[in-house]
Each structure stands twice: as structure tokens, then as C-alpha cells.
Design a protein around this nucleic acid. Structure first.
Length: 161
DNA sequence: GCCAACGTTGGC
DNA sequence: GCCAACGTTGGC
């Protein structure tokens, strides 16, 4: 492992996580204070969660709604939690191929930090960034968890304060 | 409702 | 391992 890589591990990282407000909204998180980010059933998104560290910051994005955009900010407070919904038959997130002995899906716990002063809408994000800078604005993007470069994160933070 | 952009599945 | 068929996400 080279020195720049070990340095990265000590740095606070930024992410963006999507949720449909009908399923779980920023207002619900504000009320709950903390929540388990469960129900992720995409390997790439799961693997991003596995790269998270305690203290990492996360932009909360409302998807599949009007209007879509960044609505808040939160912090990762717990890692490597087995997603309980994969074993719950009545849950929409039930995975018959998973078992408590060999779970497939895990998640993180996040804490509410603040709501965006004003929604940072997808059209605004498209004006501010291109898809190389911000994967979220890529056409047809379906990834529900996205890493955010630190310079981009600083800009986004300014916009939602 | 349409469709782009993937991801997943299963036959071979 | 290839790839066609199918499913899902999510903006519009």
C-alpha cells in the first residue's frame, strides 16, 4: 500500500445517497434522528457503503419525486450492520437467496445533521456540474449511493447551507 | 407512459 | 464466458 492511499483512509469522505421520499424522506429522518440505511439491493451501492468510515458525511437526495434534488445532510455513525430486511418475508426487501448464516446485504447507520435551506434541484446540479464531476447528473444514472469528490462536496455544502 | 441505461438471470 | 431476454431505476 502506498502512502497516498493510507492517507486517504484518514480523510473524511463524502457520499450521496438517494431515497424516494415516499419510502423514506428527509423529514422522517429529522424526526427519527438516526436511521439504518437498509434495503440497498445493488452490489455496487452496497460496496460503496462498505468503503464508508464513521464520520463520513452524506448528502440526502430525494429521487423519483417532484422535484428531485438534494434535501439534506447526514453523518455515518455505524458500519457493517447486517440488513435485517433481507430475512423479512413480508418486507419488499426480502431476499430468498440470503440467510442469517450467509447474509448478502449489509448497511450503515446514519445520523441527521441538517435539512437543506433550499432544495438543490437536479436541473441546478446539471448546470453546476458535468457527469464527469458528478455521477448523479449522468443521464440514466441508477446508482443509489455515489461517492462525492471533496471539492464538489464543499461546493454542494455551500449551496445547501 | 416512455425510454435510456444499466444490472441480473439463465441457457448454452 | 457469452449474450439475449428481462427487470429496475428514475428523469421527463
Amino acid at each position: 500500500m502506498n502512502s497516498s492511499k493510507s492517507l486517504d483512509m484518514t480523510e473524511e469522505k463524502f457520499w450521496l445517497m438517494k431515497s424516494e421520499p415516499d419510502a423514506y424522506s428527509i423529514d422522517t429522518l429529522k424526526k427519527d434522528g438516526v436511521t439504518l440505511w437498509d434495503g440497498i439491493r445493488n452490489y455496487q451501492a452496497r460496496n460503496f457503503m462498505r468503503k464508508m468510515a464513521i464520520g463520513d458525511k452524506v448528502f440526502f437526495y430525494h429521487s423519483n419525486c417532484k422535484p428531485p434534488g438534494i434535501v439534506g445532510f447526514m453523518e455515518v455513525i455505524e458500519l457493517n450492520i447486517v440488513d435485517p430486511t433481507q430475512f423479512q418475508k413480508e418486507s419488499g426487501y426480502y431476499d430468498p437467496k440470503s440467510s442469517p448464516e450467509k447474509p448478502r446485504w449489509d448497511c450503515v447507520k446514519v445520523k441527521y445533521l441538517f435539512k437543506a435551506a433550499k432544495l438543490l434541484s437536479l436541473p441546478e446540479l446539471k448546470i453546476l456540474f458535468n457527469e464527469q464531476e458528478l455521477l448523479l447528473v449522468k443521464k440514466g444514472n441508477r446508482l443509489s449511493i455515489i461517492p462525492i469528490e471533496i471539492e464538489i462536496a464543499k461546493l454542494l455544502l455551500e449551496k445547501i447551507k
